[in-house]
């Protein structure tokens, strides 16, 4: 093993140890000094996770979160030199982590928080204005074939839990009171979207979610709307389009050339 491999191994190991060959001017135990590095690596990474997952941390408490984060870090140290998206696998880790099993919705809340970070840093794209979309109405017959491109920050999260309501309750000043009104067992779908410079998290209806994921997959406007209606009788196409247009989520809307006459 190389020197740095030994050093790196000792930094991340569960049990403290000190690599050979380290010295201190006064002959004191270099292990005490090495612990500064060991601590700094782990604590800085725990802090990075706490920054990304504030609600996840609040749900289980700081002590539990940090202890869990430490285990996550030992099993999943960063592979990228940029930490912005570090911990994108924390939700999967939580699902396989027995001590967190009592909080059944924790993994999905973590997923939502990571989507929020992704949306924050996602690529920029100029949204279409209502005035730019309006001319498409002139070719009504071809409208069902239109391909709608969505903003790079947009993501949909399906959860068996009230993931949006749980998250939103933690944005209020009286979390306890807000949480009392939430039934965590109600399934919700989250829409994550950066509007201007702010990431917004919305709860959307099942039909809207099917419609938007259809568009994400490149399905034509008409077909995506039909799928949404099939999945949800209450699907409100006008309201869903209004939400997307207003949020600047539609960046392209093109009627394929072959469809125009």
């Amino acid at each position: 093993m190389s020197d740095q491999q030994v050093f790196a191994g000792a930094l991340l190991a569960a049990e403290p140890s000190c690599p050979p060959g380290l010295t201190a001017w006064n002959g004191s135990d270099p292990g005490r000094r090495f612990a500064i590095y060991r601590n700094n690596v782990v604590v800085s990474l725990i802090d990075a996770l706490a920054d990304t997952y504030p609600v996840t941390q609040e749900l289980v408490g700081e002590e539990f979160f940090r202890a869990m984060a430490r285990l996550f870090i030992q099993a999943n140290p960063p592979r990228s030199r940029m930490l912005a998206f570090y911990g994108d696998r924390l939700a999967d880790f939580i699902e396989g982590f027995p001590p967190a099993a009592a909080v059944s919705y924790l993994a999905d809340v973590a997923r939502l928080e990571m989507l929020r970070v992704s949306a924050y840093h996602a690529a920029d794209a100029v949204p279409l204005t209502p005035a730019e979309i309006a001319p498409l109405l002139e070719d009504e017959a071809a409208l069902p074939t239109a391909r709608i491109g969505l903003h790079p920050s947009l993501k949909v999260l399906f959860s068996r839990h009230a993931v949006v309501s749980l998250w939103a309750a933690h944005q209020t000043t009286d979390v306890t009171r807000a949480l009392a009104a939430v039934d965590s067992d109600v399934a919700e779908v989250a829409l994550v979207l950066r509007v201007g410079l702010d990431v917004e998290i919305s709860r959307i209806a099942a039909g809207a979610a099917v419609f938007i994921t259809g568009l994400e997959q490149g399905i034509a406007f008409g077909r995506a709307a039909e799928q949404a209606l099939a999945a949800d009788d209450a699907f409100d196409l006008a309201a869903t389009l209004g939400l997307l247009i207003r949020g600047g989520a539609i960046t392209t809307m093109i009627i394929p050339r072959s469809a125009t006459s």
Partner: peptide, 17 residues
Amino acid sequence: AWASHGEVFLNDLLPLP
């Protein structure tokens, strides 16, 4: 300093001989 070894990024400025 060094901060990575192999695939792993250690997020600290580590010393070298």
